[in-house]
């Protein structure tokens, strides 16, 4: 936090008494928790110096990659809120989305700081266009309220992200290492949740087996991109900041094999979605889904720029 707050209480403001947050004299951004929060998200860490020998632009891009995966996946998973088959599953999926959103906020705050272009986490989330997002295509797909798809996509995503974050515990960037420290704990139970449901559905009834297998077949074309290494990552691996996503493939395959075998599911044999001249999500080239995601996610922020309450 860059400024000092006074513990003032305005007795004439009826709204203050609606919450205990009477110390807040500053307006809050109407969407997200805004600039103040961006600054106070652990100044000591968010503003840590760029590790020696690391290009700031590369680090900002990498934080965006890891942050955008979490942000966009979180947004898409939130489609299940008020739509899940059971209340317990709704709570589980909303909790998972919340964990990912928390990871995204720190990573985007770090990206904004390192970039030095006066953009905070909210500016990055709400004011970038499609080409500015660096998430993988899997994150931006919609489950279309099909629980088989939901479980297949979450199994793939959480297995991959856990493998990545586990390797990032020793990242030379202190913010990435800190996010990994918390994220590993969270992704571990996200993956367990998805794997247990895959087992229950795959080895369940004929219908549940068919549905989760169809979900896997649908999600599988987006798997290959997860293990493609971008130029920024190549450079940051050398510097000890990033890990090579290609190096997580073996672990990913082993975990998926373990789950699919027990669940009597079949590993899909389908061609991956193509790239455009070798470019895909990491380079800002997306499937048409991202436009829909951003239209929804950014609508309030774009309609009322800088609104506060």
């Amino acid at each position: 936090m860059s400024h000092v707050e006074q513990g003032e209480h305005d007795a004439t403001n009826a709204y203050q008494s609606l919450s205990e947050t009477t110390a807040h004299d500053d307006p809050r951004w109407a969407f997200g928790t805004g600039f103040e929060d961006g600054l106070s998200l652990g100044e000591a860490e968010i503003t840590a110096p760029v590790p020696e020998g690391v290009d700031a632009a590369d680090l900002a891009a990498y934080c965006q990659m890891l942050g955008d995966d979490a942000l966009i996946y979180s947004q898409q998973l939130s489609e299940w809120v008020a739509n899940a088959p059971e209340l317990e599953e709704e709570v589980a999926l909303a909790n998972t989305a919340l964990d990912l959103l928390g990871q995204a906020r720190v990573l985007l705050a770090r990206a904004g700081h390192v970039e030095g272009a006066d953009r905070d986490e909210d500016a990055l989330a709400y004011l970038r266009d499609q080409a500015g997002f660096r998430n993988v295509a899997l994150a931006e797909q919609s489950d279309e309220l099909d629980f088989g798809r939901c479980i297949a996509r979450l199994l793939i995503f959480s297995t991959w992200r856990l493998a990545l974050l586990h390797r990032l515990l020793d990242s030379k960037d202190p913010v990435i290492a800190a996010v990994a420290g918390k994220g590993v704990k969270e992704l571990t139970y996200h993956r367990d949740y998805a794997a247990r449901w895959a087992l229950r559905l795959g080895d369940g009834t004929e219908e549940s087996h068919r549905r989760v297998q169809a979900g896997l077949d649908w999600a599988w074309p987006y798997v290959e991109e997860l293990f493609r290494t971008s130029d920024e990552e190549h450079r940051l691996i050398e510097a000890g900041v990033a890990v090579d996503p290609a190096g997580t493939r073996e672990e990913f395959d082993a975990v998926l094999a373990q789950v699919l075998d027990r669940a009597t599911l079949t590993r899909p044999e389908v061609p991956p979605v193509g790239t455009i001249g070798g470019r895909s999500g990491r380079q800002g080239v997306h499937t048409e889904r991202l436009g829909h995601v951003l239209a929804e996610m950014q609508s309030v922020a774009r309609e009322h720029p800088g609104a506060t309450w």
Binding site: V4, Q6, G7, E8, S19, A23, S40, G42, E45
Partner: peptide, 23 residues
Amino acid sequence: RDDIRIALGEAGYDRVEVRTVFS
């Protein structure tokens, strides 16, 4: 964070900064 600021404010601390760290 807000509750900490309020409690310290009420106890007479007029400058309060609350930092969040992750690691």
